[in-house]
Write a protein that binds this DNA or RNA. Structure first.
Lengths: 200, 200
DNA sequence: CGGTACAGACCGAGCGGTCGGTCGGCACAG
DNA sequence: CTGTGCCGACCGACCGCTCGGTCTGTACCG
């Protein structure tokens, strides 16, 4: 379906994951006790462990599924953009922005709790994250090669754009002054400027 | 002294603070035990408490002094820049960049452990951080008013620039491919592009 | 000069409490 | 009567922090 990458499903998370998400985003992984998660899930501690084998598995469940979702959506956004570097850039950046607004808490956890992941989880997560970054890197390189982007430092510009999109998750509020469409408009304009595209 | 805001002193931290910094940046605040800090400081647990009254005081000591240092340096950078918006912008951005390279671990802790600060510490830290942000906001507004910056969204652009400078602390390595001067050159170019300054 | 008084730096042992995780069992659906 | 979903009770380990005390110096008194 056209533009389907723009919307993110609103089917709720499994209760224990939702509880973990809420707790982790308030206190962080190590600052959250398993008892607090159980309480938020309206379960006893063993009841929680019936569904997930460990605290780490809750983190993994939150982080890996949401990163896979981002990759799926941005892959679709890229596919739908066609060959134009400008359109590819715009689509992927918009996808990044919408993702970090719709999935802000999961995205925030994923990017701030890397230190709390056990090596195998961390490695798997980093691999997905790098894949996402390389997607944008290649688009910016393509744009520079074709002369539609003017930056002298394509890779740094690409990372800077990703950074500002990721940071949206730290300040965006669904009930804030700016709605998602406004944020997309503004940040797309800023992102284009950063890579030296013509149009503001 | 001219340009003194460009360099950051290399006098080492007090041993307990250095130990806490090292531990916090590896495992995070809640992931670090007071015993681990004591071990890194070559002290017993009571020996550590002889110097600092609590774990929270160690975090406060790390975060507040380094933020004050940033404000001092960027104030000096601003003063030395004179009235030109372009020069003011360049100086403050360069100061932000050099700070986040020289003090990368402290800056990283400060920006990632906000959740771990007790309310009074957090409020004080946020106040300093906002002061720094407003400094750049006003410069960008001035530049737009004078017509030397072209962005349609001055405040968002200002926040985006701050964000990319802060993020330098997460990936910069003193022994990496890029030296501090190169990073300053590249990111200054990107930051100018983001606010729509003429020169790349 | 020797002796006393004191202070800062530090530690072994251990406090009450919480941590992540587990065990055995109960209620109920198929 | 078996499997699923769940829980009260509990485990060993570890948490942040404190107690009572020991050192090493240093300053001042006589």
């Amino acid at each position: 379906m056209s533009g389907s990458w723009r919307s993110f499903g609103d089917e709720p998370l499994p209760v224990p994951l939702a509880a973990a998400l809420s707790a982790f985003s308030e206190q962080g992984y190590h600052g959250t006790s398993i008892r607090r998660i159980a309480e938020k899930a309206h379960l006893s501690v063993p009841g929680l462990y019936h569904h997930y084998p460990s605290k780490q598995a809750l983190l993994e469940g939150l982080v890996m599924t949401v990163m896979q979702e981002l990759l799926d959506h941005s892959g679709q956004a890229l596919e739908e953009a066609g060959p134009s570097a400008q359109r590819r850039f715009d689509h992927v950046v918009e996808c990044l922005l919408r993702f970090h607004m719709h999935r802000r808490r999961q995205a925030f956890i994923a990017s701030t709790e890397i230190r709390s992941m056990k090596p195998e989880v961390r490695d798997a997560y980093i691999a997905l994250r790098d894949q996402q970054q390389r997607m944008l890197d290649r688009i910016v390189e393509q744009g520079v090669a074709e002369g539609v982007f003017a930056t002298a430092y394509p890779q740094d510009a690409s990372r800077a754009v990703t950074t500002m999109c990721v940071a949206v998750a730290t300040w965006f509020r669904p009930d804030g002054d700016l709605g998602p469409d406004q944020v997309v408009q503004r940040y797309l304009s800023l992102a284009r400027a950063t890579v030296g595209a013509e149009s503001g």
